[in-house]
Design a protein around this nucleic acid. Sequence first.
DNA 1: TTGAAAGCGCTAACAC
DNA 2: GTGTTAGCGCTTTCAA
Lengths: 343, 343
Amino acid sequence: MGRGITIEDVARAADVSRQTVSRVINHSPRVSPSAKARVEEAIATLGYVPSLAARSMGGGRSGVLLAVFPESQTGSGTAQELGGMLLAGSAACGAQGYRLLFEPLCAAAGDPGAAAKLAGTIGALQPEGVILLPPLDRAPELRKLLDSRGIPRATLPGSEAASGNAGEAAARRLIELGHRQIGYISGPGDPQRSERWLAGYRRALAERDSRAHRHFVAEDQPGLCTALDLVRALLVPTIRPTAIITERADTALAVLHVARSLKLAVPRDLSLIALAEDPELVTCDPPIAALHRPVAALFAGACERLMAARKTADDTAVSAELPLELTLELIERPSIARAPRAI
Amino acid sequence: MGRGITIEDVARAADVSRQTVSRVINHSPRVSPSAKARVEEAIATLGYVPSLAARSMGGGRSGVLLAVFPESQTGSGTAQELGGMLLAGSAACGAQGYRLLFEPLCAAAGDPGAAAKLAGTIGALQPEGVILLPPLDRAPELRKLLDSRGIPRATLPGSEAASGNAGEAAARRLIELGHRQIGYISGPGDPQRSERWLAGYRRALAERDSRAHRHFVAEDQPGLCTALDLVRALLVPTIRPTAIITERADTALAVLHVARSLKLAVPRDLSLIALAEDPELVTCDPPIAALHRPVAALFAGACERLMAARKTADDTAVSAELPLELTLELIERPSIARAPRAI
DNA sequence: TTGAAAGCGCTAACAC
DNA sequence: GTGTTAGCGCTTTCAA
């Protein structure tokens, strides 16, 4: 097994030329069934896998998708999101014989070096498509670079704010259920996002003339423990929120415990909704509703879009950024219910 | 910018042959300083980056490190760990001009298809080194394959159990501090690991003839909320643990709150230690001690070992698995203290 | 110290 | 439908 099976070996085994083998593995229609069958068998028995390097050098498709992410990822949830995208993206790409590569890039938005570095990476890898992960998707020089090179690019749908504000959506839903006193617990995480969601929550309340409970936690993102202290303080008085929104799943879980220790039943006395999804939210009692931004799924979708773009348009046109639907999904679970008649 | 800058362009600009350029970028000693200088300047001004594909095809180093992970990663902490490794590994590799690629592989340990698939990936990528992420590192057929191909491989040090049992280490430390009644809260996560740690905890207690509080949570991994209920039940009676170990960081944080709501001071009345590190553990009050397995750092170390192996040994010998030190680090923080004299 | 030649595995473009 | 030819960008081996 010196250097691996090559197309030549397959060609010999199937008694055809290299080109025919090439046609088969590239799904060219102009191959006779018999030849195709023999080639496929040879491929299977020999365990042949085309060399990525040779393939991309020959001028064909490299079979590589590139995802660039900001270098200095510091948030705590970030690694998790990244991991989720890696998992989902790899699965999606692998299913179509593609490979997915993650590369860090300087986070500084306007950094001119970033574009240069991306150019280098592109030259080295010849990716068939590039996914710009936030906040890189907002860097015009990167987009321009990709466009000028004719490389399809994609971004996570809805990263541009407007399209999905979880805080607002959650608040609206609770208001719809008759709640008027709604607490909001921001948890550690991306502060900018937190602020946006909090603003959305305020907006929803203002529109419907609902009074938010004053003690929601805002600017300073409290740790889990501090947040729980606040929640307890919030829930002890007779006049208390009938619903609480938490940014993080673990906070919601802990709030459930606090409520229980205070003899408050969920959802009878208190509705609970988390702005992040987590398997534990399903298994607790009662299961907690969540507003979920399926980042991993969206990412996988972006990969698929890119792979499809290559097949159809080829060099005709650079794939536009078709925004996917489903950017934010409300997962209803027993932890939310209509507000009690009176407080 | 049709297809990118090639070595030819650089050679022309520096007025030398391609070989000379090649020598420069490969740090060959046999290049005259003047030529070297001109080449380097040309590279800089042209923004030349060697094509990975051409390079690996020419028979040289591909500049690619491959990390394979089990396909069906289901644990909730897993994505986070994976993301952390991606972050740390990319940084380490990027610093030396390497690229890091993550590929999923069937999880089933003995799956014969896994080896075949890995062989294919190797053929396609020609990686210079492969990192087998647990539990893939225990698959002999994969190791064998890599060895037979002469590809350096690495695994995360200490994944083989023995070297680091966080449960045991934490228990020992607490016993050392005089604690005898120690609770253990297993949290959702890798059940196997959980079981090992729990066993280690039991072992430590048994050795020192300490009595674990019976109500620790074992086999069934409770959700956060359930765990808190249990902790509360544990802490209410007069006879209660003087220390609690939690597998997850968020559980520790929440336990801190529970203790507080029960008027128990940490660490005066209760010592607390988490078996996972998290930024929040530092910011809470008091900061909570943690036993941390720096997976990301270990992974980056593995990458570095692989890159070094290529430079020195080349094809002489496949790099052995030098276990790193520092596989488990105890981060002392104010949440642990000597046990109170009497209970 | 440098250059010329050959070839890595594959795919486009062109023949047949 | 199929085989032939000519590279892709680089590195190795050999000559100078």
